[in-house]
């Protein structure tokens, strides 16, 4: 057998034959030919390494939120209506078709708007994410000098500083513990509203809120360490939008 013969039969042999069960003349050539030997072992390596890629990627939390919204819209989720007759919507649930907020209830809208605004604010303050995140309203508004003034003025609406200021101050350690931080005031307000209007859904929303808060926290930590990473900053903004979407879906559902 020659090299060209090996190349010809390889597509058939590589997956068809169990290890070591290659025809004798094939084996003989491969053993004595470094090029073919390298080729065979590389192709096997690629194939086996590829298997490791099967479930490595985590979808963003918004994927589930969209699925859940669609399932509700199509009536495939029925327990909310059964268990919450007093709050079951009589009109069709409005499913957000885009990620643009479409606030329809007064009691949560300012909160959700603030979530987005806060996200814009934090993300746009590139040089000082630590400061921006960690409090003191005066400092937050006045002191960090944005590297990108245009982006800042466009993306930090007026409510942001006020809403952010309501958050309790956190320690300014650069290394943060991997524990759940205390819920923010708007989260508490949100969960209280859910508890009042749809007690059975509280756990669901509490978990989703935890997930998205964890995402924000981890992304923020990453951005702090890699302030120049635009992907990470985009992800952080997405995470805030995600949170806003969660509020929106909740209010569509339980008002």
């Amino acid at each position: 057998m020659k090299c060209s013969d090996v190349e010809r039969v390889l597509p058939e042999l590589l997956d068809g034959a169990p290890d070591g069960a290659f025809p004798a003349d094939f084996e003989t050539h491969v053993k004595s030919c470094p090029a073919c030997s390298n080729l065979v072992s590389d192709l096997k390596l690629i194939s086996s390494e590829a298997r490791q890629l099967a479930a490595t990627e985590e979808p963003a939390p918004r994927v589930w939120l969209r699925i859940a919204a669609e399932l509700r819209a199509e009536g495939l989720i029925s327990d909310a209506a059964i268990r919450e007759p007093e709050s079951a919507p009589t009109r069709p649930i409005l499913v957000p078709t885009s990620r643009r907020p479409r606030w329809s209830a007064r009691w949560l809208a300012p909160v959700a708007a603030a979530v987005v605004a806060a996200g814009s604010y934090v993300v746009s303050h590139k040089p000082a994410p630590q400061v921006a995140k960690q409090q003191a309203p005066a400092t937050r508004v006045a002191s960090p000098i944005p590297e990108t003034p245009a982006a800042t003025s466009a993306s930090a609406p007026t409510p942001a500083p006020r809403q952010m200021a309501q958050k309790p101050a956190k320690p300014t350690d650069t290394i943060r513990p991997a524990v759940e931080p205390e819920s923010s005031e708007e989260d508490q307000q949100f969960l209280t509203a859910v508890s009042t209007r749809a007690p059975s859904m509280r756990t669901t929303y509490e978990n989703q809120l935890k997930a998205v808060n964890a995402d924000i926290r981890e992304t923020q930590a990453y951005v702090d360490r890699n302030p120049g990473d635009t992907d990470a900053r985009q992800h952080l903004m997405d995470a805030y939008e995600q949170k806003a979407l969660l509020y929106q879906i909740a209010l569509d559902r339980i008002q």
Binding site: V63, A68, L71, S78, A80
Partner: peptide, 25 residues
């Protein structure tokens, strides 16, 4: 099958990585 949201969510979380990874590849 009974329409319980939590059940859909469990199924989603069990398989989300595999499904999303496949799509992404």
């Amino acid at each position: 099958k009974q329409g319980r949201e939590a059940a859909f969510e469990v199924l989603y979380h069990l398989h989300k990585r595999r499904v999303y990874s496949l799509c992404l590849r």
